[in-house]
């Protein structure tokens, strides 16, 4: 069950790689096969299941291209 989700807006991302470097669990990588519309190399979340949504990737993103969400499952009844 995914604990969190990292969404990188490819319209804003400039492929600087800070998110790749600063993710404490190495969940993000620039695989080199995906490009942003502007032609930058787009980082992708390669290990989504290990993402403990801490939000560091979003915090250090100069283009403010990353949104991070946390999933919480609640037992209602």
């Amino acid at each position: 069950m995914l604990k969190g989700e990292v969404i990188i807006d490819e319209a804003l991302c400039q492929g600087c790689g800070y998110c790749v470097k600063f993710c404490p669990r190495g969940c993000i990588a620039i695989t080199g096969d995906k490009f942003t519309p502007q032609g930058y190399l787009l980082p992708t979340v390669i290990k989504p299941d290990e993402c403990k949504p801490c939000g560091v990737c979003a915090m250090l993103c100069p283009a403010a291209a990353i949104e991070v969400y946390k999933f919480e499952t609640e037992v209602v009844a």
């Binding site: 949504p53 979003a58 403010a64 949104e67 991070v68 969400y69 946390k70 999933f71 037992v75 009844a77």
Partner: peptide, 22 residues
């Protein structure tokens, strides 16, 4: 029947992203 089954709800909370003033 619905009452007896365990119902799980998954909520999605925003943790980090573009500040409102940005």
């Amino acid at each position: 029947d619905a009452m007896n089954e365990e119902v799980k709800v998954v909520t999605k909370q925003r943790v980090a992203g573009r500040p409102k003033l940005l």
